[in-house]
């Protein structure tokens, strides 16, 4: 019995969820009373940083073909590592990379899998994991009955913990199969913070009246170091790009702080955001359903409240630095 942790990288750097995976995987190993090994695939410049998060042994498949975490090849490499290490629990993040890798790996290893865990696994009367279901409206406790098991956790489930130490990095040779997929181009939307990785998300809806009014939303997000999001109609009518659409049929986010401005709080919107630790709602209508889900609320006009809030954030930052 041992745990294998997949730490994702992008542009030759470990991602935020890579560190979370190490913490989640090490804690899982300690629940099972066993050791953990980390695997990194593709060229990566800061692997040694994993030591600070408690990783002892890191296998590195140092091949440029894996730089895009191509799921077919990455799943192949991870399954080779799992076989070599005799790992029967594999841990990764349920992010864009993990969603491509996990299902392929499950088939390769004949493993039962739970994607989207919101807690650490339990090992009492069977190995089971709590996962988010019904788009955040409920949870299911799922038992994995097969010998090999794969768990992917939702980003921001457990904060990455620095525990100190140093990692021993081993080169791991894998002869990769040939595949029928070629990456032609990679387009980063911008250097902006990605929505699923952000600790704070500032989101706005149809209450903003038009795309020209998003300047203050972006300024607020900027001041808070937050990513921006929007409700579905706003993306549908083209006020904001599709990748900002959160909710049941859009992106699911679970930041520490979600600020919803001019969004009514329809059940489909809430489904994608109610995993947030704290929610703030700003809306002119005191009856807006979103206030029922909110932790803090301001009843008021966004066009008056948001500029004041931006000033307050500036003052707050000055006072707390």
């Amino acid at each position: 019995m041992s745990v294998l942790i997949y730490a994702d990288s992008y542009n030759k750097k470990l991602t935020k969820t890579a560190y979370e995976a190490v913490t989640y995987g090490l804690k899982t190993a300690s629940i099972l009373g066993t050791q953990a090994t980390v695997i990194v695939t593709g060229e990566c410049e800061n692997i040694a940083d994993l030591g600070e998060y408690g990783a002892n042994k890191v296998l590195h498949v140092n091949k440029p073909e894996l730089n895009h975490s191509e799921p077919q090849l990455t799943a192949f490499a991870i399954s080779e590592a799992a076989n070599k290490e005799g790992s029967n629990v594999i841990v990764m993040a349920h992010d864009h990379s993990g969603k491509g890798i996990l299902p392929r790996l499950a088939v390769r290893l004949n493993a039962g899998s739970v994607p989207g865990a919101v807690e650490l696994p339990k090992n009492e009367g069977g190995f089971s994991v709590k996962k988010s279901v019904f788009s955040g409206k409920a949870f299911a406790q799922v038992e994995i009955k097969s010998d090999k098991k794969i768990v992917s956790f939702l980003p921001n489930t457990i904060p990455a913990e620095k525990v100190g130490g140093s990692a021993q990095v081993e080169n791991f040779e894998v002869s990769l199969p040939s595949i029928n997929v070629k990456v032609k181009e990679v387009k980063k939307e911008s250097t902006k913070l990605s929505l699923t990785e952000a600790d704070i998300v500032v989101s706005a809806g149809r209450g903003l009246k038009g795309p020209e009014n998003w300047g203050m939303i972006e300024e607020l997000a900027n001041e808070l170091g937050a990513a921006t999001a929007c409700s579905r109609p706003v993306a549908d009518i083209g006020w904001r790009p599709h990748h900002e659409h959160v909710g049941q049929t859009g992106v699911t986010v679970r930041p520490n702080l979600y600020i919803a401005i001019g969004i009514s709080g329809a059940i489909q919107h809430l489904a994608g955001v109610n995993g947030s630790k704290v929610m703030v709602v700003i809306n002119t209508d005191p009856e807006a359903p979103f206030f029922k889900a909110a932790d803090y609320g301001i009843v008021g006009d966004a066009f008056e409240v948001v500029p004041k809030l931006i000033e307050a954030v500036k003052a707050f930052k000055a006072a707390n630095n």
Binding site: N110, A111, G112, S113, V114, G126, S128, K130, V133, G136, K137, A138, F139, A140, Q141, V142, E143, I144, K145, S146, N274, V280, V281, F291, K292, A293, A294, D295, Y296, G297, I298, V299, G300, D301, E304, V305, K308, L309, A312, V313, A315, F316
Partner: peptide, 29 residues
């Protein structure tokens, strides 16, 4: 079957929303 759902649960009920005056967003922070 390799997996089985043992039980379901709903998120814990939220405490009531705490309101802050529109004139004083500093209090929110």
């Amino acid at each position: 079957d390799l997996t089985e759902i043992k039980s379901y649960s709903l998120p814990p009920a939220k405490a009531a929303c705490k309101y802050v005056s529109a004139d004083n967003p500093g209090e929110l922070l």
